[in-house]
Structure formats: structure tokens, C-alpha cells
Design a protein around this nucleic acid. Structure first.
Lengths: 135, 135
DNA sequence: CGACTTTTGAGAACCATTGTCAAACCGAGG
DNA sequence: CCTCGGTTTGACAATGGTTCTCAAAAGTCG
């Protein structure tokens, strides 16, 4: 390290496209597919390639800034999230989402994993249903 | 109904292909993709079309005879299962699976749903990790 | 400004899954 | 054993979400 030190900073640049994706994400609070988000952006006047939307969403997900989960068809759906670990109650029809926490469940999961000597645990826990408005 | 009565029996026929899929399923106890199952069948000497494998697996899943869930890439994976409601602890590397039950989690999920007035609830809860053998 | 690196976009490529439809098959009567 | 009508199958095309490719465009920093 020559100067100060920060040898391999990923160097993520704040581009127009990334700002557009962020803005789109800020505009809804339910889960949307990448393509829906792409449409939203177009509708807002910006133009961002679909591949870029996918790339940006993946990056944000890795950084923990958005949640990505899969709907019952296996499609990836995304939304911005709070930074604490949580799960979701998602409306199958309109996508309306409630963030829920379940500390007891977390504990249960790690206990189960431990009992069976599984390491590097991750878990998925999502609840799907029909929200009051969609009944 | 003319004769006795049994108006719309689906009439599922026990064909060679369906038997082959069942046999393949009986041959492993971890989760496999449809394509892997298809390969397995070929390797066992039978010949069953891929589309038929998919159709049979879907049918079995609807009948509750196999579990279908999605791995972290969104691919459907399948295995035969016990008939009680349960979840899974799945090895990310080799697919080794442990069926686990969590009555407390079930209760927690329905309480959460009720609190938010969501109906027709379903939930997914799977734990992924690395099994002792794959460490 | 200039050199260098990251990012983008258009479209091709991938690949799991589902649809299509004629041919093969099954089971029940006759 | 033969026929009839619905069921199932398989080869292949078609879908559709997601990723890859690669040259052009845009940031970064001196």
C-alpha cells in the first residue's frame, strides 16, 4: 500500500442508472420483480437497461440494502428493506408486504442446525397470504 | 350418474413411466432437480421423457406425496416425504436433508398472519447449511 | 486534458419449465 | 381377443426469467 491504505476498494460509482434504480425502489414498499422495476423506471422517464437493473439489484442485495426472495413460481422479487434481519408476510395477489421479526424462530433454526451439526446456516422464512384489501 | 356413482374420478393410471419416477424417488432421500431425477431414471435403464418426469413430479407434489421446494437459485428440487407437515434442513453442497418439525413456528406464523388479517396463509421455511460430511 | 477502470446497453445465449399434438397406451365392454 | 374412448407420452418447439458478451460511454483522479 503506497499512499494511505485501502488496497481493494470495490469502487462503486454513483451513476445515473444506479440512482434511478434506488429511486424506483424508494417508490414502492412491496416486492416487485426486476422487470416490473425496470418498467417503473421507464415510466418515470429514465432509461436503464434491463441487465443493469439486474446487476444493480444484485449488488444492492449483496450489500444488504434490498431483500430478494422468490415468489411461488421461483421468480426473484425485490424491495428495499430495513437493515435488521427479518422476514415477510406477503400478499399473493397485490404484493403488499409486512416485515415481521421472529427472534424465537431464529433461535429455533440455529438450534436445529446445531443439533444436526450443520454449519454456515442460512434460512428462508416467508409467509404468503391474501391481504385484507384483496379478500 | 348412470351406474353406481363416481362422476369425475381423475383416473390416474399406473404406467411404466410413473412407476419409474416413483422408483427413482425411492432411491434417494435428498432433494434433486427434475433433470437429475430424469438422468437417474435413464441410468437405471428406463426411458422416460423429461416432460413426463415434470408432469409426474407435479402430480405427486399436488397429491402431497413429494415435497417440492426451491434452492437458492430458484430451481425446483424434489424428494419423497412423509405426509405430515414439516420443513427441511438441507445441505447446500450435497443436498443431504433432514426433515424437521416446528409446531411453535407454525403457531407463530398463523398468529402473525392473523394479526395482520391475512387469509389463506401458506409459508415456506427451509434451512440451508453445510452438513458435517461436507465441511 | 489524459490514462485507466468501471459501467452500461443491446442483443445473444442460457436453461429450467411448460405447451403442443399426433401416436401409443390403458382398461372396460362386447 | 377386438374395439372404443379417454389418458398418457414423447419429441420438439416455445416461453420467459436471468446472465453473458463486448465494444462504446462515462467516472475518477492526477
Amino acid at each position: 500500500m503506497t499512499s494511505t491504505d485501502q488496497p481493494q476498494r470495490p469502487a462503486v460509482r454513483p451513476t445515473r442508472q444506479r440512482r434511478a434504480v434506488a429511486a424506483a425502489l424508494a417508490g414502492f414498499d412491496d416486492f416487485r420483480s426486476a422487470q416490473e422495476i425496470h418498467d417503473l423506471i421507464s415510466r418515470q422517464g429514465d432509461s436503464v437497461g434491463l441487465a443493469t437493473v439486474y446487476r444493480t439489484l444484485s449488488t444492492l442485495a449483496e450489500a444488504g440494502e434490498v431483500d430478494m426472495l422468490r415468489n411461488e413460481d421461483g421468480e426473484a422479487i425485490w424491495r428495499s428493506c430495513s437493515d435488521t434481519h427479518h422476514h415477510h408476510l406477503v400478499c399473493r395477489t397485490c404484493g403488499a408486504t409486512v416485515e415481521v421479526e421472529g427472534p424465537a424462530v431464529e433461535r429455533w433454526a440455529s438450534r436445529i442446525a446445531e443439533e444436526h451439526a450443520y454449519a454456515e446456516i442460512s434460512h428462508t422464512l416467508e409467509i404468503f397470504g391474501t391481504c385484507p384489501a384483496c379478500r
